[in-house]
Each structure stands twice: as structure tokens, then as C-alpha cells.
Write a protein that binds this DNA or RNA. Structure first.
Lengths: 244, 244
DNA sequence: TCAATAGTGTCTGTTAGACATTATGCC
DNA sequence: GGCATAATGTCTAACAGACACTATTGA
């Protein structure tokens, strides 16, 4: 922002949503089938243009969340990044602000108003390029997943994948699914209990899942974890050691 | 991005730059004095509107970096976030994409083309609100500093504050200045050497600084650090334990 | 020689990671 | 009781943090 001429070029602004959830212990993202050109029939992230000139970006994200995904509320919604390469949209210059949302496991594939064409898709075929996505949405999904992976380490983001109350085993499944590794339940139990403020006991309630019933917890007050949940060294496998 | 009417509201797009450097062992940010309303005479981040409709965001950031800061090249430049609250600019809706840049210590306060009014300012009075900034630039600076703090832990970002070659003591000063804590030189030495790929020896060259000359290093190939440089527990002091 | 910083060594408490053991439900 | 999972305990190697010590220069 500076002393430039106020008559600056104006750009159509859109928001795109990377909505992640867990289904059958695998990470899924919500996609919609496009009904119009360009990329008619292709899979794309839910999203859309600002509805009017004064709409806030987060407001637009929440509106699309409700309209396209039929999700009135999600426990986590935050900006992911800006995608504004000239040429990313064949119609012309469009700058899109991507948001990352996390939703707990939902009753069934959404079937709402605009959300008829929406469906949950496992992320792996999308990341590998096995399945195609419209625009630059593959990169956005990849950035969203990577963002979630990193954030699981240092924040209580994992609880956003769970219901209001959950067992420690369920929380562990979140880490295993998002990180794509296996964790020792005993050590995980200790670790997660040691990060005070992460989860708090939710009364004496219990839940059975075949074996001994487990205690229920809910998300604690802290959003920043200390000590962090480290992706153990033996989990160094996927990415090359050189990134960025 | 979806099936909406293509005739979407278009918004003037700007880029703002948070350019950080170290001066006298303190973290500084580059600010310019505004020459026009609004906020005429106030301090603001360097930046400006897109020059034309097809200009890339990173391109715009680099252009402003050269024009307003006289910095042809910086070792680190990355998107920081989007600031698009309606009302953040009294002239009307403006969405700004903020970039974080890191520059090594520079010969002298920049004095270039547009950069006459630019000056390096210590960040603390800005973060505390003691010094005023135009628009929402205080928040952007705060986000940029926080981003840098976090990134020092897991990436080789610290080397971007240094010249091409540097001593381990100089690298330590970066951590101490950005984190605002003191570190033990002996343990820091071991730690930084243990993170292989972080820094590599730069020949047998040496440099004197009062005592025994130190070995010179340059940035290594890895951008992602393992093991990370942890802000030690005793350094938990500044922010409340609850964030986000 | 001393002053000052670079670089190495050592010790100790804590923790990650491996795995044994006990507890508590349901069939 | 038998089975499955929850929860706790134990051990060991590794590491963070503290600090003693040696090394190498200039004054």
C-alpha cells in the first residue's frame, strides 16, 4: 500500500475451500463436480466468487461452506494461502484465497442445497495425480494437506477432526491417518496426556468399542501444544529431506 | 471457484512487504513514510497496487521490493497472508497480499529511487503499539515476526539474515534477536552442527572478531531442519500459553 | 602475559520409543 | 473364562541443558 494512483487494476476475487475429514481412517477432501465451463464435469474444490464488493473473505468462505457443503459450522477454518497466477483460470485473471477447514466425521455424504454434486474423496489419488482436478486445485489440496500435517504437531488441530467428545484411540487415528504412519498406542497415550491443556477428561463417561470402554475427552483450552507431538524420526520416509 | 456468474465483483489488489533484517542485534523492519492521504505522514509497509491486470503477485512483490526498498534481490521472499477486511482502507475495499522478506544486514539505510523515505525501524515499539502504523500494518508486522519466529525452528530461514558466509556466533545472534532469548553458545554450536545440511563449512577461511577467529560457513542444501532448533522450555515466557 | 572468543568434552535429568503388565468391560 | 482393548509401568538409548576445559588469535 503506497502512494500509487488509486485507480488500480481490480481483480475478481474468489474463495476456495479445502475441507478435510476422516472417513474409514483415511483422509478425505470434499469436492464438487463442476456444472459449467471451464472444466465442466471435472472435480473441483467448493468455492466461488465474492457475492458482493464488501463481503469479507472469511465471511465468503463461511457462506460457501454453508451453500456448497451444507456445513453450518466447522471447528476449524483458517486461511491457507492465495493463488493468483495469471493464467490459472482460462476465463482471465482471477485471484483465489484458499481456506482450510476441518470437519469431524459426518453422518453421510453431504446432500444439501447446492451440495448435491459434492462428495468426499480420499486425498491420495488426488495428490498423486491419479485423479484430475480443475484449475490449480491439486496444488491447493496438496498445500492444505501439508498445512494440516504440520499443524498437527504444534497445535490441537487434531481435535477438530473428532466429535465433541472422543477417546484417545480416536485421536490417535487422526494422527495416523493424516501423517500416514503408525503410532504406538501406549506411548501416544502418555504423550497426549503429558501435553497439558490439549485434552481434558469429559466426565466419567465411557464408550465401548469391542474391548474395555475408554474414557472420553474433549478439546482442552490450549491451541498451541507444548511439548509438541513430534513426527518421530522413524517416520521420516515420505518427502525428500530437502523441501521448500 | 464454481458455477457462479462470471461477472463477479472485482477488487483492487495490493501487495505489502514485511522486510526484516538484523541491525545491532535487534530485529528491524523496513517502513516508508506515506506521502499522500490516507495516513499521510504515517509509517507504513512498503507496497502498492498491482501495476497491471496480469501482473503476478510474487512479481508485484519483487517489483515493490526493488522500487520502494531498492533491494534487487533477497534470500527469502514468501507469501505471508491476505488482509482483506472491508474497511481496512478508508478509500474503499482493498485486498492486500502480504509478503515476508528477509534481508541480510545492509550497508546503510536504503536510499534509492522511491526509497528515500524508507527507514529501518526496530520491531518492538511497533508490536507494542508504542509507535503507530498506517492501516492494519501493525497486525501484518506482528504476523510477519511471528511467522519468522516459528520458521526459525524448523527451517534454515536464519541463514537468510546472514551474509553469504557467516560464523556460528553470527547465526546464533539471529536466533537470539528474533526469538528474544539468550542461548548457550556451546550447546548452540553442537546443535547447529548436528542438523546436517543446515550449514556447511565455507573453506578454511576465518574471520576475527576480538578473540579467536571463527570458521566460516554458508547455508547448506536443506531448507527443512531435522532435528529442529527448539525454543527451549525455559524460553517459554513471552506469549500466553494459549494462542490461536 | 592477559583478554576474548572459538571449539570440545562431560555430566545429569528428561524424554522418546520399545515393550511388559495389569485393568475392565462384553461375549 | 476368554477376548479385546484401555491404561499403567519399566527399561534403555538419545538428547537438551548446564558448565568445565582447551585452543587460538590479538593486544
Amino acid at each position: 500500500m503506497d502512494d500509487d494512483d488509486w485507480r488500480a487494476p481490480a481483480v475478481p476475487l474468489a474463495v476456495d475451500l479445502v475441507i478435510l475429514t476422516l472417513r474409514e481412517s483415511r483422509l478425505h477432501v470434499l469436492l464438487v463436480e463442476r456444472g459449467v465451463d471451464p472444466y465442466r464435469g471435472a472435480l473441483a474444490l467448493p468455492g466461488g466468487f465474492l457475492s458482493h464488493l464488501e463481503e469479507g473473505l472469511l465471511d465468503a468462505a463461511r457462506r460457501e461452506l454453508a451453500e456448497e457443503a451444507d456445513l453450518a459450522e466447522v471447528p476449524y477454518l483458517e486461511e491457507l494461502g492465495v493463488y493468483g497466477d495469471p493464467g490459472r483460470d482460462p476465463r482471465g485473471r482471477v485471484v483465489s484465497v484458499a481456506f482450510l477447514a476441518i470437519a469431524p466425521r459426518l453422518p453421510e455424504p453431504v446432500a444439501g442445497t447446492d451440495a448435491a454434486a459434492a462428495s468426499w474423496r480420499p486425498v491420495e489419488p488426488l495428490l498423486s495425480g491419479e485423479e484430475e482436478l480443475a484449475f490449480d486445485h491439486r496444488r491447493i489440496v496438496a498445500d492444505g494437506v501439508e498445512h494440516a500435517r504440520r499443524k498437527l504437531e504444534h497445535s490441537a488441530l487434531a481435535t477438530a477432526f473428532c466429535d465433541a467428545t472422543f477417546t484417545i484411540a480416536e485421536l490417535q487415528q487422526v494422527y495416523e491417518a493424516v501423517w500416514g504412519i503408525r503410532l504406538d498406542p501406549r506411548n501416544f497415550y502418555r504423550k497426549v496426556q503429558g501435553a497439558r491443556g490439549f485434552i481434558v477428561a469429559a466426565g466419567p463417561a465411557r464408550r465401548t468399542d469391542g474391548g474395555r470402554p475408554a474414557r472420553l475427552f474433549r478439546a482442552g483450552p490450549l491451541h498451541s501444544l507444548y511439548p509438541p507431538m513430534v513426527r518421530s524420526a522413524h517416520a521420516v520416509h515420505e518427502g525428500a529431506p530437502i523441501d521448500e
